[in-house]
Amino acid sequence: MFANAIAAERFRLLRDRSTLFWGFIFAPLVGFFLSIAGDIFLRQLAKKPLTGMPLDLVGQVLKALGSGASVFPALFLAIGAAAVLAGDYRWETWRLLTPRNSRPHLLGAKLVVVGEAILWNLVLTVGLTLLAGVIGASIAGKTLVVSGSGAGLGQIAGVFAVTWLEAMTLASLAAVIAVIARSPMGAVVAVVVVRFVQTILAAGLGAMAPEPTWKTLAIPAYSADLLRGFLAAPNHAGLETGPVGVALLVLLAWAAALAGGAILLFQRQDLTRE
């Protein structure tokens, strides 16, 4: 039954080209073109090849993944997530679906499919970052470097997973707002505002207390940054594993609590007029 709901939701999203493009493809493409444009600009400015300047592909990928759920990409991920999660309110199509599968399955399937789309969005980010590195190096004449080799792949996988989890906390928030507001626009605005406020709070509280505290760890963006910093640091130097574990639990707890809350609210909701 749940598998049926996931298959149906995936089928829908694959046919919704506008949501696929703007929600999950556009932001990595912008990153790709900006990176190329930066290298062209650098080459024009230097008026000669930047021979000898290293370009670390692993570092580039870690940097791109690290900002994969920051405010700008979050805006587009929110557009995609909101279209999937709140589309049936907008189109008044819940009445077609709710008699065919249970409500927890229907909304749960939407979250799974959004999770899949975010995963592919991050894969695209990695792919386009690598491509931009190779193209950019040939344009600017930089020397390509792959640092860390095997360890680098592990770092990329870890940062990838953390960014995906951070994005899922935002997607789960979008689900809660979609159910409450019954509006895609409401979900987009809420996600972007919450992500922006998280950035401000994490920076402000982080500056006041350089060591992680319960207050700072409760902010998903701070916890995600802490985890990424831990994973990207060579030999994890200078970081205690205690706060890192708490940070991971905080991200998991936020994603689970918000997703569970959305499903609970949806299960009790009257669909008089979607």
Binding site: A7, A8, F11, R12, W91, T93
Partner: peptide, 18 residues
């Protein structure tokens, strides 16, 4: 009402999957 990006066939296919 139907998701506007789906064709009639897609709509029924989606409901069959569901």
């Amino acid at each position: 009402r139907y998701p506007p990006y789906l064709t009639a066939r897609d709509t029924l296919s989606m409901l069959a999957l569901e």
